[in-house]
Write a protein that binds this DNA or RNA. Structure first.
Lengths: 225, 225
DNA sequence: CCCGAATTGTCACCGTTCTGTCATGAGTAC
DNA sequence: GTACTCATGACAGAACGGTGACAATTCGGG
């Protein structure tokens, strides 16, 4: 797992690099926002640790720019300020999690692991998947059944992806919200149901009698291929 | 991948040649602007490294002349001056990226990779392509449908090429801007939409109901052949 | 077997964001 | 000068995401 650290203060940078190396991650460090952004855009990383307080290009700006350029690796923000405002700005700019200094290295590692794990399952899904009589093309974001092709929205694609990644295991509603919606934005559980309904309409020959996208009462949903 | 280096100072030239050769690129070096321009026009290169400060024909002039003659390989400018002015002149003259001396070789390699990657996909498109009832001739820059032939502008051709290279996957607006417009010149996203509209008018029998050049909301566009 | 609580399905509605379109104008090549 | 290409901003319309109300279903306990 390759991790990029963007942090201007030397002592903190060193501490982060050493800690993460010890855990077996491959670590690259940048000392300001610009070089960090450059690195993040040109080399592949599985996670970015981003300090907020940096001269010139701060962490928020780097994160926004990253998202703008379509990089979707998880970003963990680090900041000295602990205010709510900062938190909101950070998550708004596209960060996935947020850690206020001072933090314990133990806590840092836990969050890093959590973010990496979140991606893992999700990433290992093939480009196309056959579900009953239907075929899902994740790359093209479309679903074909009986010769009819339905476009899938961003969230719909994400939910199907997550269900596929679970390989038939039930996926709790909370997991959908965590992974698809992200750390912030917590819509009601009704929202998840709505998307399930939309997916059933496209996927199931008989949406009222689902045979593939099944309800697990009290838990969530699971995908029967 | 063939790279042309145009640099008058011997030590720098040697360093660049050696570094890039070590990375496995095929490298040719020119020691002044005129011979560099000559080489760039007569032999095929995938990338040009261009020093700005050279006697007689400087980097800006070489780059402008290259573009004028229709060579569209990526150009990476190198200069000792780090001023904003220089940067603007460089990008205005048609360069794709800009690196101020002194720079680390690591950074140079990262930019080279980035520029080459940007082109990669783009190159592997056949000369003509059938899209539904239409036929695109990339070399002649024209599109024929129902016996009517439409001329395609430079940007229109580029966008179609990029869409074709994506093989049905969605192409983000950012990617269009990166690849077709280049590193600098960041027009608004409305510009991309306008070109899509123009392409639809020529490509689609029913431009209001596109069946080939599809919108992927929140992302960009994709080509359904 | 029936009742009631909890969970899920469905629907209409609304605000936000994104896209399509157009008029306009600068810049450039012919 | 004229035609063409490209860029911009305003605006309207559409798609998407999110919510709350209510109906339907499930399940456990009397």
């Amino acid at each position: 797992m390759r991790i990029l650290i963007v942090e201007d203060e030397l002592p903190m940078r060193t501490a982060l690099v050493e800690t993460l190396k010890t855990e077996g991650y491959r670590v690259v460090a940048a000392h300001d926002g610009e070089s960090g952004l450059e690195l993040a855009c040109t080399e592949p990383f599985d996670l970015v640790l981003l300090d907020v307080m940096m001269p010139k290009l701060d962490g928020f700006a780097v994160c926004r720019e990253l998202r703008k350029r379509g990089r979707d690796m998880p970003v963990l923000m680090l900041t000295a300020k602990g205010g709510v405002d900062d938190r909101v700005t950070g998550l708004d700019s596209g960060a996935d999690d947020y850690l206020a200094k001072p933090f314990s290295l133990r806590e840092l590692l836990a969050r890093v692991r959590s973010l990496l794990r979140r991606r893992e399952r999700y990433a290992a899904v093939p480009d196309t998947l056959a579900i009953g009589a239907a075929t899902v093309d994740f790359a093209r974001r479309q679903l074909t059944r009986d010769g009819t092709t339905h476009a899938l929205s961003e969230k719909e694609t994400g939910m199907l992806r997550l269900l596929a990644a679970a390989r038939g295991a039930p996926v709790p509603r909370e997991t959908f919200l965590d992974v698809i919606w992200g750390y912030h934005a917590y819509p009601s559980t009704r929202t998840v149901d709505n998307f399930i309904a939309a997916l059933r309409a496209k996927l199931e020959p008989e949406p009222a009698n689902p045979r593939h996208l099944l309800t697990i009462r009290g838990t969530g949903y699971r995908l029967e291929i």
